[in-house]
Design a protein around this nucleic acid. Sequence first.
DNA 1: AGAGAGGGTCGAATCGATTCGAGCAGGGTT
DNA 2: AACCCTGCTCGAATCGATTCGACCCTCTCT
Lengths: 416, 416
Amino acid sequence: MSNRFDGGVHTAGTLAVASNTRTPSRPAARPASRRPRARARRTRPPVAPSDRATPGAPTRRCTLSTQRPTLADVAAAAKVSVSTASLAFSGAGPIAAATRQRVLDAATELDYSGPNPLGRQLRQGRSGIVGVVVGDALRRSFRDPVSVQVLDGLVGTIGPLGLGVLLIPGADELTAATVDPLVESAAMDVAVLLWGGTTDDPVLASLRRRGIPTVLVEGKQFTDMATVGIDDRGGVATATRHLLELGHTRIATVTLPFNRERREGVADEERMTALDWEITSRRLAGITDAGVTPVAVYETPASLVEHGADAGRALLSAPDRPTAIVCQSDLLAGGVVLAARELGLRVPEDVSVLGFDGLDLPWLAPDVLTTVAQPLAEKGAAVAHAVEDLLAGEMPPYRELPVSLRIGTTTGPVPA
Amino acid sequence: MSNRFDGGVHTAGTLAVASNTRTPSRPAARPASRRPRARARRTRPPVAPSDRATPGAPTRRCTLSTQRPTLADVAAAAKVSVSTASLAFSGAGPIAAATRQRVLDAATELDYSGPNPLGRQLRQGRSGIVGVVVGDALRRSFRDPVSVQVLDGLVGTIGPLGLGVLLIPGADELTAATVDPLVESAAMDVAVLLWGGTTDDPVLASLRRRGIPTVLVEGKQFTDMATVGIDDRGGVATATRHLLELGHTRIATVTLPFNRERREGVADEERMTALDWEITSRRLAGITDAGVTPVAVYETPASLVEHGADAGRALLSAPDRPTAIVCQSDLLAGGVVLAARELGLRVPEDVSVLGFDGLDLPWLAPDVLTTVAQPLAEKGAAVAHAVEDLLAGEMPPYRELPVSLRIGTTTGPVPA
DNA sequence: AGAGAGGGTCGAATCGATTCGAGCAGGGTT
DNA sequence: AACCCTGCTCGAATCGATTCGACCCTCTCT
């Protein structure tokens, strides 16, 4: 039952590539003792033989290993020197319009599609690549719109600078000892750690060892790395005061993970000492700053709706339930609201819920979260500027972006 | 009110890099007419002066432009040849354990952190980079878990192969004429187009011109590019038959965008002719295959909850409303369900809703979508294998993954 | 007419590795 | 003793560009 279209066939009519008549051009004076290897442009082997070759399948060869023309070929065809040909493409330096055109024509003729980036990169000592280490498996990381929006802001700002973003999976939660090979050996001019690491982060250690300038987003601050953060502590404090003004006293909180372990459940005394992630402890501290001691601190393994729902169910079905719940992310808060609805509780009449991030959650309608909004796109742009600074050889100062309390429909006066 | 922590200061104690005593090693016999430039390892200029220099800010210089040691330095220190030193790192070739250790020690001593990837890449003619063109602004693209999960599957499979993913923003919807500079000139061995392009896609044209092997996900098929797809047409047909069996006859559909324009609203005759995107028309065709002519075709500008909600409100508040709505994505379906709830309609008693993708939507609880599930992680893996094939010089055959109807709680018998 | 200026080209070095085959030393075989 | 491996190491070419300064040629100015 394979209902598939056979899309229109459309092959670009490529001219046959001109022959490689380039002579090996050996150095003028050579020892002459050894005959130079007569490899006229050795064709590269097509990589590993790929052990998963489908037995009976028809293997069309594709045009990968075709000898592509080089700048030297173009220069020869245009009867100019390589340096002049280079100028024609880069535009960096004086070149006569006619010459330039001749080179460009020759390029078209030879089907040369511009200078090979690898050559350029080696020469310039720059790859033009910014490695972005996402804190976790993409699958999970990107379910959180926060990461995505920051990344989007980042890409939007560094793209025009001619930089590209290389996606690097962070350490797996359990096999945290090993670092992704990309961290160890990918070419990148700068690295960015979304959800900046902890002191012992092996990724950080690896980047340091490689001497790659790094930008941390929301992490601890180190003198040798740039940091971009937000005033989350102050934001949470403000938001908590808002709850106090509404008369709440029994306030619980739902937090982001404490550390790599990512446990789930109410944190006891002992667990509190294991709090390692900067972002979690800062937001927790915001509550204390407002003079509130949470009646319960519920740790979640990730900022996801389902974990928020679990937390909400647990906190709201306990006896002497809190009248307000401060959540460290909007997704968690959304989950808590869903749990409340599920338990037949009205929001905010029976329980107030506070989020963090300022996301737009259409599926929560008709409710609109009261939340501490952070400027996500700006954060991405700030990261981009930090990247730019590092590239220019400067260590940018710590940059803290402001947050703002946005009142929605999920917070209200304490129930009588 | 800046409540910020001053994170623990922690600087890696780097040894001073050994002096660069390497002599310029000019060719044995040289014309001697011109004195060779006496640049002993010219220090590279720190790039563009960055016109956005913050005036009064204290600019700490960072250690970017420090001369880093090269393999030659290490070889010299270890008193072996460069080739031997290379062997010590790459492990490709016979080398005595003692020699190897000596090289490694020398490397540690010099604070050399492994071969420069750029040199390797140039030599090997491979960048180890897979460019992934996301169809749109990341912000929007990644709000759709479908893209994210496929990307995750892809990264998970090609990561171990030593390949990295370069994120490339697709053409903006309006300025579609221009292509991202990365498409034009980034170093990549293979490109992947999530949401494969249409025939006239400028991105496709650019990649073709550059001769970069490409994998299309869910696009039209071309002979010169690899394609991975799913049996969405068959899946929609099966799902539609399910609705027929439940007795539905007034069936509407909510679709993905028709083309770059991304219009919103019920499509009239004329608009139907503008249907350009393969994926949309295939899923639409599935309905027809089941022998159903939709009572309304509602086009949305993107696969997002809010657009689904808009569609739902429009379709369900019309007179003679449909008893079932087939949606081309789960997010759209979720939005439709929310709209139904909003209008006081019960799902599935009053209206059945069918999704596509097989996502897990915790916020839709207690409802669980009936949906056509596609194997997203596998799709990512299939793309990865296609990439691998292209890298090995083979054009992989079209690969179509199966889908499966997953019955949830959002479809039921037609209302009496 | 000669000097000076300056636009345009070119040669050669260089970026940092990989890779191939040659060569060399030492041990085992006939 | 001659010979052949075997196992390591090394020299040199090469990947494909960029970039610097030298040089040449023409035009202008005095």
